[in-house]
Write a protein that binds this DNA or RNA. Structure first.
Lengths: 227, 227
DNA sequence: CTCTTGCGTTATAGCTTCTAACTAGAGCAA
DNA sequence: TTGCTCTAGTTAGAAGCTATAACGCAAGAG
């Protein structure tokens, strides 16, 4: 708590900002990204519309912060799950991590969609946000490194995808991981995202399929997949 | 061409409607769903805003038609690919079908996201749209049925997911397919959606990963996956 | 204790969706 | 061909949005 409360003014400012964001998330949940309105947020807070422009440069900046927050939240949840399950069996850890991710998404679909749904037009991911995304991936890789068979490190086959992933790994300080683990990490991410987003967007409903069952089946397949 | 040209008026009406939709898709591509404006579409067409309300009950109806059209387009593309590759090896057919899907999405990401991105608030999938979605799935299943080993039909194991899928299969007149094929169909759909949507939304860019390579890797895994 | 700085105000421009009321003209029917 | 109907377009306007400008007040900074 060393950087907070720099001054009463700063404190107050931060408080108003976060209340505005809280209400924005409510509106997001109620009527999607398009339903977020600075004007009506201000009204909810008992101030006039233009007053909010002292706190946010505009609607886009508010949106961007919501995205930023969501990225960090999700990364915290996933990394927390992985951290909390050290000492358990690797397959169990992967299952738990996956479940954490899905639960996070199901609990707040609108926020998940803010990250992985239709990109909001004026938004370009800032460095820091990318960092949070990579933190999530790092957690996934943590578990996978443990799940992978030991002899994997000696396997030399390097495809083009492997090289791209290796370059990313270097930049992220995960250069020590075998290519196959990185590849599997990408597969985990994209498959989990596939099931979760289909479920959240309601595409499974009309088929009468329970999202959780499909999800479990996909996670099982990931664990069973040969290296 | 028996139902078209019922009357000059009807013809003209249909023509204006489709021009409006054409412009709407342009706007969609340029600035996302939020950028679609009846007013500015009208302006583009050389008429005033309210005039368009003779053709569409409101913005939501226009949006809904764009979604409807996109569903049918995608279904046509996928079904067409599957139809066109009869006589080829099943694995090749699957690969081609998958590529068709990805190409369709890459060629018009905004339209893909209209279907599989953040759901538009006021929109509830009408029966007919669901039909198009199921047509896509039917095409996938067509290929998979051929790819599956013959002895599969004799395998009795029926999970809860299998039962849900079987019920859907009955309703769709695909009751003859083995449960494992239906399950695999769901996996194909969700995995393809996973990679494609990550790529389209630009999540692979910051990692330096080429979407096509990841895509191929996932398709290969699907083909190699044991039954 | 003064003075700066920041928060909130109102007013306003320009955009949006969408309704209401009206006009002109195109197509249909006798 | 004549006459009627109905449709597509018009303008006007309400209500809402983002965002900027100009102004006052009050609280923290020094």
């Amino acid at each position: 708590m060393s950087e907070q409360a720099r001054s009463p003014r700063e404190r107050y400012r931060e408080q108003t900002r976060s209340e505005a964001k809280r209400i924005a998330v409510e509106q997001l949940a109620a009527s999607g990204p398009a339903g977020i309105s600075l004007n009506s947020i201000a009204r909810s807070m008992g101030i006039t519309g233009p007053a909010l422009y002292r706190y946010f440069a505009g609607r886009d900046e508010l949106l961007t912060e919501l995205i930023r927050d969501a990225y960090h939240d999700l990364a915290d949840a996933v990394a927390g799950s992985v951290q909390g399950s050290v000492r358990r069996a690797p397959a169990t850890r992967l299952r738990e991590m996956a479940t954490t991710m899905r639960d996070w998404a199901l609990a707040q679909p609108h926020r998940y969609l803010l990250l992985f749904g239709t990109p909001v037009p004026g938004y370009a991911a800032p460095e820091e946000t990318i960092g949070a995304a990579h933190r999530t991936m790092a957690a996934i890789l943590d578990v996978l490194a443990e799940l992978a068979p030991p002899e994997l490190a000696t396997r030399p086959r390097r495809s083009a995808l492997d090289r791209q992933l290796a370059a990313w790994g270097e930049r992220q300080g995960a250069g020590h991981l075998p290519p196959a683990v990185l590849r599997r990490g990408l597969a985990v991410w994209s498959r989990l995202h596939g099931v979760v987003s289909l479920e959240i967007e309601g595409h499974l409903g009309p088929m009468g399929v329970d999202g959780e069952l499909l999800f479990r089946s996909e996670v099982d397949a990931l664990i069973a997949e040969p290296w």
